[in-house]
């Protein structure tokens, strides 16, 4: 794909709104439901995911095209990627702790959770199956993660209000959160008509 302002804009709109990570593609549901009780934790998680996903899109692309393809080991993709992501998360955590303690204290507790966030691995694999180039992979990772951040932030705002509502007992906790997510997903379906 050619890199121009228009193609980047289309990619951004697609990744953030039309094919939203949580609400349309069902990736990263665990953190979406797990850490969305408060808006500030939601934003912290969103930023941590954005950071890791942009980096991991870059590194997994390099690993795939510079190591696995020349060595004809494409079938080891899943194992290689999950290891790269786990190592990257560990590395970023250690680096942040030493170099940027303020950022570490803000994102620190969310970082270990990201290793098993299926969105990170999912986007790394999507970048390969869609045949994106290096720049597009990085941008795709970043935009998808921003879409995740947008969704989890809106969701957390709604959930903060639901806290004070009188909910029937069986629906308290998880079920009402899922139904809220369903309504949010309805709203995002409005974007699906926007085909480029």
């Amino acid at each position: 794909m050619e890199i121009s302002l228009a193609s980047v804009f289309v990619l951004a709109i697609n990744a953030v709104l039309v094919e939203n990570l949580c609400l349309v593609k069902f990736l990263g549901i665990c953190p979406f439901l797990g850490v969305s009780k408060k808006t500030d934790t939601a934003i912290g998680m969103g930023l941590a995911v954005t950071f890791i996903m942009t980096l991991s899109s870059f590194i997994t692309w390099l690993v795939y095209h510079l190591i696995l393809v020349p060595a004809k080991l494409e079938y080891l993709r899943t194992i290689a990627f999950i290891l790269v992501i786990a190592a990257l998360v560990q590395f970023v955590e250690t680096a942040l702790k030493k170099l940027v303690p303020s950022l570490y204290s803000a994102l620190g507790i969310y970082l270990p959770l990201i290793t098993t966030n299926c969105a990170v691995l999912g986007i790394a694999i999507t970048n390969i199956t869609e045949n994106y180039g290096l720049v597009f992979s990085i941008l795709n990772g970043m935009f998808c993660a921003l879409g995740f951040t947008l969704a989890i932030w809106i969701f957390a705002c709604v959930r903060e209000r639901i806290e004070h509502c009188d909910i029937p007992k069986p629906f308290q906790g998880f079920p009402i959160a899922l139904i809220t997510a369903a309504l949010l997903s309805f709203a995002f379906m409005g974007f699906s008509g926007m085909e480029f």
Binding site: L23, F26, F171, I176, A177, L178, I179, A182, L183, M189
Partner: peptide
């Protein structure tokens, strides 16, 4: 997708 959330909920 919206139906998935709804049914599971």
């Amino acid at each position: 997708p919206a139906g998935g959330f709804l049914v599971l909920g």
